[in-house]
Nucleic acid binder design. Structure first.
Lengths: 361, 361
DNA sequence: CTGAAAGCGCTAACAC
DNA sequence: GTGTTAGCGCTTTCAG
């Protein structure tokens, strides 16, 4: 059934087919065309360094012919033979999440800088699919695997990964040690920074909106609870809202918050995505941001700077984190699973937060 | 240098290693364990249908052992042998673009429904990188390639693709016939729909903001020009603004528009991304949307429903388009390059557009 | 119904 | 310096 797509027509080498690109050109073709052996061709094309010396003339000839014939190595064959596939597997929980979109871009850039290509597996918000993906990627002979997002609800995946035959590193999994090396952000510091900012503006009734707690999100919620306690500010019932990490989740949370007898004067969300939904809900309710309610997010996704009003948030050092992860996983460095690398976020104060000003009371 | 990562330790088959997953289990291992030949194992595992009958007992035994040993086929070897790799290559111009993020998700879903994985190549807004990518993907033996975005400024890529050994289909390239099969949207209908909507609300001074014209974007601009002409409404100088397709581009365009002696009462953008920037700029200038200026986008990206105010836009039938493209390219159907498949968009009227109401004059 | 054998394109010992 | 020779794990004739 398959196979009928393959060209059986082979041009005799030396054919004048200048720019007429032909089917797959193999090393054998080059060997024939140059009158050399395939292994010599291989050696030249792999620039086997000092180990095996090659006559300069030979090398030039091979290179020339390879160029002319438009030779391109077959990564499958290479991979089969045990060489590296120059493939970096990335498993991401939800591509739709603008935050991960940025991360994917970052990892692609970082990978291609090292000559790697990225195979993207998409678990579509279901971590159990990620398990299958993982199998695929390993089988696919990726040289390394990077995991994006909190797969914490799938301990099995994490365990499997720990026993992987390729290096694995996880990003944004929260900073609790797992079985797999990871790069995280200091969620506590981030949340404390926004809350500090809000507190300094006079806010005391601050609500929190986040997804059900796993990984990073869990830490953010805990940091919120901790900070409020330290502020000696009791958190009223209903001030902690759990909603799926989507725009609509932010809307739902905000609506619920403002049905409360004593609504908050500020809302902190676990991600910018939720914050954007919140911004929208405020508008729909006719509440002015930041005059009547302040809103702050977390991540600093690209659109955060352009929301209405611009969103105060915590900037995630995405590129740095990704670079770190890629370096760890490709340089095969000490993949120490017990001690995650933790990077620092920073507060970005924009127009969505301001002094508290008595809305009604 | 490479290779030291490979386990040389081979467990003798039959070992009690129940859940202790071991290194790569090959067909040979299964053959040995069952006492059958490798080819039989292969036949079973490939469910070679009616062609080659297999004793039920044999089949069961192989399956059982394969299961127990945790066998997973090596796609590299499969691919080498000429079989399909179950890999769908996707080249996307800019992952950061929220629109493409949605498209990627759609293609991943569609692909995995057919048992395919997606290899994502990211051209990072530079189409010349896409050329290299294309080479990579082909060499990577993808069974098919899907192109996202207007690579129209890189005729070379398109030409190369036309001579590809694997089926290729391009999405969002504009509807002009190229050398490669494509799926497009009726940009003209989309733009006319928004403009019609705006005109019905009483708008006459309508500006257009779009990226430099290629592919879809070009068609949208042309449709705008055409519609305004038909409306018998001269387009004042400076009402057509070219900005990069980024949030910041929308800001810049809006600012320029409102420096004009006679600013527009409505702004139509070629994409939602630009519209969002525009919304932001309006807020910064203190112009109320939609009371003082109406704004409409194109694409209906997920966030469009949650902007402030919610964005009127043209809904791109992303899933349908992607499904169509995947079907074309995988079912190897008639890849007719001369006649693009064109799907219809639909207007989504939301809060960012309203009747024109004399702002100042 | 099953086995033996020939490679896919490439790398890596090992010879000369 | 270069050629020979084995395979990597799998599919696929071609023989039993």
């Amino acid at each position: 059934m398959a196979g009928d797509r393959r060209d059986t027509v082979k041009r005799s080498a030396g054919d004048a087919g200048a720019s007429l690109r032909q089917g797959p050109v193999t090393m054998r073709d080059i060997a024939r065309a140059t009158g050399l052996s395939q292994s010599t061709v291989s050696r030249v094309l792999n620039r086997t360094p000092t180990v095996v010396p090659i006559a300069e003339a030979t090398r030039a000839r091979v290179l020339a012919v390879a160029q002319e014939l438009g030779y391109r190595p077959n990564p499958l064959a290479r991979g089969l033979r045990g060489a590296s596939t120059m493939l970096l597997g990335v498993i991401v929980r939800d591509i739709t999440d603008p935050f991960f979109a940025g991360a994917i871009e970052a990892v692609t850039v970082e990978a291609s800088r090292r000559g790697y290509n990225v195979v993207l597996g998409h678990a579509h918000a279901r971590a159990d699919e990620a398990i299958a993906l993982w199998a695929v990627l390993e089988a696919r002979h990726c040289d390394a695997i990077v995991l994006f997002g909190d797969m914490g609800d799938q301990p099995r995946l994490i365990e499997d990964l720990a026993g992987a035959r390729v290096p694995v590193v996880a990003l944004w999994q929260g900073s609790r040690p797992t079985n797999v090396a990871s790069v995280s952000v200091d969620n506590r510091a981030g949340i404390h920074a926004v809350l500090q900012h809000l507190a300094a503006l006079g806010h005391r009734r601050i609500a929190y909106v986040g997804a059900r707690a796993l990984g990073d999100i869990k830490e953010r919620e805990e940091a919120y609870v901790e900070f409020m306690a330290r502020l000696d500010e009791p958190v009223p019932d209903g001030y902690i809202r759990h909603e799926p990490n989507e725009f609509a989740g932010g809307v739902a949370a905000f609506d619920a918050l403002f049905e409360l007898p004593q609504p908050p004067t500020a809302v902190v969300t676990s991600t910018d995505v939720l914050a954007i939904g919140t911004l929208h809900a405020a508008r729909v309710r006719g509440l002015a941001v930041p005059q009547e309610v302040s809103i702050a997010g977390f991540d600093d996704i690209p659109v955060a700077e352009f929301t209405v009003p611009a969103l105060t948030t915590v900037r995630m050092p995405v590129r740095k984190m990704v670079a770190k992860a890629v370096q760890m996983v490709l340089d095969d460095a000490q993949l120490d699973a017990s001690r995650p690398a933790i990077l620092q976020p920073s507060l970005v104060a924009r127009a969505s937060t301001d002094r508290v000003s008595g809305p009604s009371s």
